[in-house]
Amino acid sequence: MTTHSLSGRAEEMGREQRAWLERHSNAIAIYIALAVFVVFICFPFYYIVMSSITPRTDLFNIPPSYWPSSPTLENYRNMIDSVPFLTYLRNSLIFAVGSSLVSVIASAMAAYALARIKFPGSNVVYMLLVLSSALPQIAVLVPMFETFQSFNLINTHQGLIILMSSLMLPFSILILVSFIMQIPVEIEEAALIDGANIVQVLTRMMVPLLLPALSTMTVINFIISWNELLYPLVFAQRDVTKTLSVALVELSSDASTYTRPWDMLSALSVFMVIPVLFLVLIGQRMIIAGLSRGAVK
């Protein structure tokens, strides 16, 4: 093969490569941006996991190490011995599961009433919900504490669930109202004409159609409740109702930046992140299944 033919072949290959890059430049840019985003999101969790198995004496090494030279589970044992971990874990599960279920059930009923029933003052109620969702928690903390104390709901699971559910209700109602309004009312009217009662319409038609929204709101409300700190810190003053988020405060109290037990804090943070990741993975399947079952045919 002559030099001229080789150079021609090289030029042709160069043109093909440039044409390929031009055709796929947008896709390449998207994948690069996605990879950077994934690294940016996952690195803090990776660092927390590494810190949880790194000996405390090695946490502040200069330069920092991103892989422990001698991994250990001593941090987890020390954390479990320092706080009543199993009690706090049970309380967190009761608090998060109860709050998410109560808030979603109550908000679904309220959202259906606002979306389907036209009553005097419905617009006012809707606007009050919008305004209440913007109200900061600290603004109503003192009157809420006095009210719950008068009903003997301080240091009780039911008090925390009621309190957290009331916090998440406005946002949940606003989201579910928009979903319900997207469902044609003619579907319900046709079912009523065919002889179905209102309970059958709600349970056999509306719930399957709203299952994606209900699943999503349950996952979101669980994550919000699981990570909540202010309400458990103020309204749960005994170990029988304290949550894992309160344990983070207890571990770091009376300590400066360098004397704070970052090893135990990292171990506890890993335990707090794992249920959320597990729920998100399970919730994705629930949402996809709900979409296929709730599709209008």
Results as ranks from 00 to 15, higher is better:
Ser133Gln: 14
Leu89Ser: 01
Ile138Gly: 12
Pro136Ser: 01
Gln158Gly: 11
Glu146Ser: 05
Val125Gln: 06
Leu192Met: 12
Arg116His: 07
Phe119Pro: 03
Ala108Phe: 05
Leu160Lys: 07
Ser178Gly: 04
Ile138Phe: 02
Met205Ala: 14
Val201Arg: 12
Phe145Tyr: 06
Phe95Gly: 09
Ala96Asn: 10
Ser166Val: 05
Leu129Gln: 08
Ala191Arg: 02
Ser132Pro: 10
Gln200Tyr: 06
Phe151Ser: 05
Pro184Leu: 11
Ser172Trp: 02
Met181Cys: 15
Ile105Cys: 14
Leu89His: 09
Leu129Thr: 00
Phe171Pro: 01
Leu160Val: 08
Gly121Phe: 04
Ile162Gly: 08
Ala108Trp: 00
Ser172Thr: 11
Val177Asn: 11
Val185His: 07
Ile154Cys: 07
Gly121Thr: 00
Ile183Phe: 02
Met127Thr: 14
Val125Met: 10
Pro120Val: 01
Asp194Lys: 04
Leu89Tyr: 06
Glu188Asp: 07
Asn123Met: 13
Ser107His: 02
Gln149Ser: 11
Phe148Gly: 05
Glu186Trp: 01
Ile175Thr: 01
Val130Ile: 13
Gln137Tyr: 05
Gln158Ala: 15
Pro212Met: 00
Pro184Lys: 07
Glu188Val: 06
Tyr112Phe: 15
Leu129Gly: 03
Ile105Tyr: 12
Gly195Phe: 09
Met181Leu: 15
Gly98Arg: 05
Ile105Ser: 09
Arg90Tyr: 07
Pro184Trp: 12
Val185Ile: 14
Glu146Cys: 00
Pro143Cys: 08
Val140Arg: 05
Ala196Thr: 03
Met127Asp: 00
Ala134Val: 13
Met168Gln: 08
Val130Met: 14
Phe145Pro: 01
Val185Glu: 14
Ile161Glu: 03
Gly159Trp: 08
Ser122Gln: 08
Val142Lys: 07
Met127Phe: 08
Ser107Met: 05
Val177Ile: 06
Val207Cys: 07
Gly159His: 02
Phe119Asp: 03
Leu169Val: 06
Leu211Ser: 15
Arg204Gln: 13
Thr203Tyr: 02
Val140Glu: 01
Lys118Ser: 15
Leu192His: 10
Ala110Cys: 03
Val142Trp: 04
Met205Trp: 14
Leu167Lys: 12
Pro184Asp: 00
Ser172Met: 05
Pro170Tyr: 00
Val104Gln: 02
His157Tyr: 06
Val97Thr: 04
Met127Trp: 08
Ser92Gly: 13
Leu192Ser: 15
Val102Gln: 10
Ile183Leu: 10
Glu188Ala: 09
Ser92His: 07
Gly121Asp: 08
Tyr126His: 10
Gln137Cys: 04
Glu186Asp: 05
Asn155Asp: 08
Ile94Asn: 01
Ala96His: 04
Ile187His: 14
